[in-house]
Nucleic acid binder design. Structure first.
Lengths: 346, 346
DNA sequence: CTGAAAGCGCTTACAG
DNA sequence: CTGAAAGCGCTTACAG
């Protein structure tokens, strides 16, 4: 039982392929095809389980109704949830989405983009690695529908949807300072990605505002490439070298999870020995005891906005640059208690 | 700058489209095209940034080099990680994969499969919901490459890769019993899915082996459809009704996470007040204190095996049924300490 | 060693 | 109200 084609239906109904095509695309009324023909074509199409061949359709029309999404790692909590929202939102407009992981790896990222390009996505949603700048510029030059998410390039004129990363870090450090913490460390990734730079700036500015001095020795930059076990060890070493650290801001979910492992290995108790705030919420942070305070991202808003802008580009040719910067939400749990004031002279 | 086609290259090089096609598919040598022509065609193709149009190719050949993966929920820890492995493995064979979530919803599941069918995947990897049985039977009838994962249908002759779910549950309950637990509860989903039924059987048989009686009142079945908050409340009610429960086996990751929330709300401390084992590992269980003992699935093995079998079906037409049942791994952490023996008569 | 031609399944301007 | 025909970009049996 081969798949039925327009030709099959045409033969069975005695009308032309043209007419069948018009009817099945719902343009029968408009093109004044007689009701009897419309009815007959529809009946036969149903009986033959007709489903249009998408390749033929795409080859002819150039449209695929498929969006490409490139993230660092689909198994990461933040991106996994974002992907789900994106899928849901895209579906509302009749689009499906292809997910790809760049693994923060130059080769992989460009390869994955090439594949999507070959499959001719109608639009692209990308959390770009730094190495993708040339590709992103090319996409823009070719006027392809594109929205960057989670981060952007300052010298690329693309629409994007991101968190106010500066504010997220600033608020966290400010909160730490108000709670009485004095030696606030930053554990971040060794990357020039814009969102990490902004978090770094927010960290520094909040220190300054609270009259705490910025010490490079309290900042640990971990390489993206390292394996998880190595990162845990790196963080342990860092913390051992500076036992005066009384609070840590982790700039990513993954770093936070590994950092908790380091703290456990060192026998340091969160809250009692050290304050912790982490970027991005997850189950662990929510349910750990003590619960971990986090800067949570409005994942739903990010996904919804990104899809809306992208669809607007695709369907309404609205290529105007849109920059959406969403507010982070500092969720206070148990990992950031007020510090007892040190009473020096009793 | 339009995309270059074979025709463009043919025109520029002065040879026929046929020859260009042969050369660019790497069959030049074999078809004895002269070296000079091969060189010229390749040079021009590169200069024009030639990339073949996949629709035209697929329309002609019927192949897409794309696999469809349908899971419950891509943002779930187990499936997110499985998806990543699947993507990696598929890539080794030159295939990309389209991910879809069924949301354990009848309508969504069938809709998503229809979309994949329309896009003509070369093969299907499915964690099927019960409602998908007819669709799965249809896929089999049409002899489409298909591997079921995580669960299967007893009356569908499909290849599958799953965990030995019976053993996972059996080992857990047996371990509980050996540690001195006596009132072991099962918290599971209200579903007839085979993997849940097997876990239920393993639970019952291990009770019997340890001469503990099976009490329906110690089993809580939660509806798939419930929202997370409602599940938390349901579990709380269940635990309050049976304060004698001293251990719980959760049959899924999600249930376990919500169950921990219920326990926390009730003020029950894991390990001290109640033993806990959960199906599927995740960051929370690994890093919580106390750490949660789990039955971990060999995610890598599942993904690798599934892809291997699927590719074998696609490329070697090996449609023989393969059933791979992988061994679970009981990882003991701190949530299952030995119970002090009650000394009744001192 | 190379090419003309058919055809995959669809859409669409054009004609009547 | 309906249809013949071109064409999207490719592959492939066939011919020479």
């Amino acid at each position: 039982m081969k798949k039925a084609s327009l030709k099959d239906i045409a033969k069975k109904t005695g009308v032309s392929v043209t007419t069948v095509s018009i009817v099945l695309n719902g343009n029968g009324k408009e093109r004044k095809i007689s009701d009897s023909v419309i009815a007959k074509v529809e009946r036969v199409a149903e009986k033959l389980y007709y489903r249009p061949n998408q390749f033929a359709k795409s080859l002819r029309t150039g449209k695929t109704f498929t969006l490409g999404l490139i993230v660092d790692d689909i198994s990461n909590f933040f991106f996994a949830h974002l992907s789900k929202i994106v899928e849901e939102e895209a579906d509302k407009f009749g689009y499906t989405v292809m997910f790809c992981s760049s693994e923060n790896d130059e080769g992989k990222a460009r390869n994955v983009l090439k594949i999507l390009l070959d499959k001719q996505m109608d639009g692209y949603l990308i959390a770009p690695t730094l190495s993708m700048l040339p590709d992103v510029l090319q996409l823009i030059a070719e006027k392809r529908p594109l929205v960057l998410i989670d981060r952007f390039f300052q010298n690329a004129t693309a629409s994007y949807v991101t968190l106010d990363n500066y504010k997220g870090a600033y608020d966290s450090v400010d909160y730490f300072a108000n709670q009485g913490y004095r030696n606030i460390a930053l554990i971040t990734n060794e990357t020039e990605q814009i969102q990490m730079k902004e978090r770094f700036e927010g960290y520094k500015d909040a220190l300054k505002k609270n009259k705490l001095s910025f010490l490079p020795a309290l900042v640990k930059k971990v390489s993206f490439k390292s394996e998880d076990e190595k990162i845990v060890i790196q963080i342990e070493k860092f913390l051992k070298a500076r036992p005066d650290i009384d609070a840590i801001l982790f700039t990513s979910n993954n770093l936070g999870v590994l950092g908790l492992e380091s703290l456990r290995n060192l026998g340091k108790k969160v809250a009692r020995d050290i304050g912790v705030i982490c970027f991005d919420d997850n189950d662990l942070f929510r349910l750990a005891s003590p619960g971990i305070s986090v800067i949570s991202q409005p994942i739903k808003q990010i996904g919804k906005n990104a899809i809306r802008i992208l669809i607007d580009q695709i369907e309404n040719k609205d290529m105007g640059q849109k920059h959406i910067v969403l507010s982070p939400n500092l969720v206070i749990r148990d990992s950031t208690p007020a510090k007892a004031v040190a009473v020096s002279a009793l």
